[in-house]
Deep mutational scan, measured.
Amino acid sequence: MEVRTIKVFTTVDNINLHTQVVDMSMTYGQQFGPTYLDGADVTKIKPHNSHEGKTFYVLPNDDTLRVEAFEYYHTTDPSFLGRYMSALNHTKKWKYPQVNGLTSIKWADNNCYLATALLTLQQIELKFNPPALQDAYYRARAGEAANFCALILAYCNKTVGELGDVRETMSYLFQHANLDSCKRVLNVVCKTCGQQQTTLKGVEAVMYMGTLSYEQFKKGVQIPCTCGKQATKYLVQQESPFVMMSAPPAQYELKHGTFTCASEYTGNYQCGHYKHITSKETLYCIDGALLTKSSEYKGPITDVFYKENSYTTTIK
Rank of each mutant, 00 (worst) to 15 (best):
A142M: 14
E264W: 04
G82P: 12
M244L: 05
S50A: 11
I223S: 11
Q237T: 10
T266L: 07
K191D: 03
E168S: 15
R167K: 14
N187G: 10
F56V: 09
C261G: 01
R141P: 04
Y73Q: 01
Y73N: 04
L119D: 06
P47Q: 04
G33I: 05
Y113H: 04
Q31F: 14
D303F: 00
I105W: 00
T211F: 03
D41K: 07
L235V: 09
T159I: 09
L102K: 05
S310E: 12
V12R: 06
V21E: 14
V42G: 04
L200C: 11
N268V: 08
V3A: 12
T226K: 14
Y57V: 10
D135E: 13
A108F: 05
P130N: 04
V206R: 04
D62F: 00
K219A: 12
V12H: 05
M85Y: 12
N111I: 03
K54I: 13
M209R: 15
T226Q: 14
T266N: 07
G194I: 05
S295P: 08
T43G: 13
D109R: 04
N309Q: 08
H51C: 03
Y138G: 13
C225F: 02
V42Q: 12
S171Y: 15
Y172M: 14
V12N: 10
T282W: 08
K54T: 13
V42E: 02
K106W: 00
T27Y: 06
A69D: 09
Y73K: 04
L173D: 03
H276E: 01
Q175C: 06
T19N: 10
P60W: 10
G202M: 00
E71G: 06
A136D: 03
P241Q: 11
I286G: 04
T55R: 10
N16H: 11
T91E: 01
F259Y: 03
T198R: 12
V12K: 08
Q123P: 04
R4V: 11
L81K: 09
L119T: 02
D135C: 06
S171P: 02
E168P: 02
R139S: 12
V206Q: 00
F242D: 07
C227V: 01
G267H: 15
Y234A: 05
K7F: 08
H273A: 04
N147S: 11
C156I: 05
Q197L: 08
I286S: 02
A150W: 03
S295K: 14
N110L: 00
R66G: 11
V12F: 07
C261D: 03
N178S: 09
T211V: 09
P248I: 02
K293R: 11
H256S: 10
P34I: 15
P300Q: 11
D62S: 14
L65M: 13
R184T: 05
C227A: 01
E204S: 11
C190D: 01
S279V: 02
G267K: 13
Y208Q: 05
E2M: 09
Q197H: 07
M245K: 01
K298E: 14
T120C: 15
D180H: 10
L65I: 06
T10F: 03
K275A: 06
L17C: 15
A247H: 02
K307Q: 15
P224G: 05
G161I: 04
N178Y: 07
E71I: 07
Y138K: 14
N49L: 15
A250S: 13
Q123C: 08
S171F: 15
K298L: 13
N178D: 13
L173A: 04
G228I: 02
T116W: 03
H276M: 13
D23P: 12
A117T: 08
V185F: 02
T75D: 00
E296V: 14
V22Y: 03
G29Q: 09
V99W: 11
T312P: 10
G143I: 01
Q270G: 07
R66F: 14
Y36C: 02
I6F: 14
Q195K: 12
K46L: 13
S181M: 12
L290S: 15
L291V: 14
G53N: 09
K95C: 10
N129Q: 13
K316Y: 15
L153D: 04
D38Y: 09
G267S: 15
